[in-house]
């Protein structure tokens, strides 16, 4: 396959993200990476579950968490997962501009999520004096949720870079795999969040 075929394909194939060997490799390699990320987050969840009782008598999960904000954050992130599905749907139909549009919506929703998370952390620090250093529970909480927030930030930067870089030239066989794995990453972020709101917030409230 010549470079021109990759950058300016005359005919888009059915699965543009897996049309080249490079695309196939990226697809598989990224899935494997997510398998490793599963263990990474499991280690963080395990640490959190081991230490969520170590509150030193103040600022327990039950006392601290408010479910309203967490519910809004969950809705934002779940919806952003759907919008990135729409983006991939348009990619498969070779409708580049609509794909870009849905990705922009995804980024906006992600930014909303990140804003809420920053507000939440600020709130805990200023209103409750609950920090990374207050107790082992504090360390474990900020580390687990913060790792997820870091993933959100990285995902947002990544998708934004892709949107800007390719705006002028449209979809081709070189950038299609990049878009596809970025959307996989974004879904995985949502997977982790489902466990965070369940294990950290809901189970924390139940006590």
């Amino acid at each position: 396959m010549s470079h021109d075929d990759v950058l300016n394909p005359k005919q888009m194939p059915h699965d543009p993200e897996k049309a080249t060997l490079e695309g196939k490799n990226k697809f598989l390699g990224f899935w494997f990476f997510l398998g490793g990320e599963t263990v990474l987050f499991a280690s963080l969840f395990g640490t959190y579950l081991a230490l969520n009782g170590s509150t030193q008598g103040e600022n327990t999960p039950e006392h601290l968490f408010g479910l309203e904000l967490v519910f809004i954050m969950t809705m934002l992130l779940l919806t952003s997962s759907l919008t990135s599905v729409y983006a991939m749907y348009h990619m498969k139909n070779h409708n580049f501009q609509k794909m870009q549009l849905w990705l922009v919506i995804t980024v906006l929703l992600g930014l909303g999520f990140l804003g809420c998370e920053i507000y939440e952390f600020m709130h805990y620090i200023h209103e409750y004096e609950f920090t990374f250093r207050s107790s082992a529970f504090g360390s474990a909480f900020y580390t687990l949720v913060g790792f997820h927030g870091g993933h959100v930030l990285f995902g947002l930067s990544w998708i934004t870079a892709l949107i800007i870089r390719n705006q002028k030239r449209g979809l081709n066989l070189y950038n299609a795999p990049k878009y596809y794995i970025a959307s996989l990453y974004w879904h995985f972020i949502d997977v982790v969040w489902v466990f965070i709101f369940t294990v950290v917030y809901l189970m924390g409230k139940v006590g």
């Binding site: 640490t47 081991a50 230490l51 009782g53 170590s54 509150t55 030193q56 990374f132 250093r133 207050s134 107790s135 082992a136 529970f137 504090g138 360390s139 474990a140 580390t143």
Partner: peptide
């Protein structure tokens, strides 16, 4: 300054 392994702050 976190407290994962700091027994005084509930670490393990």
């Amino acid at each position: 300054g976190s407290a994962f392994f700091d027994v005084a702050l509930g670490g393990n």
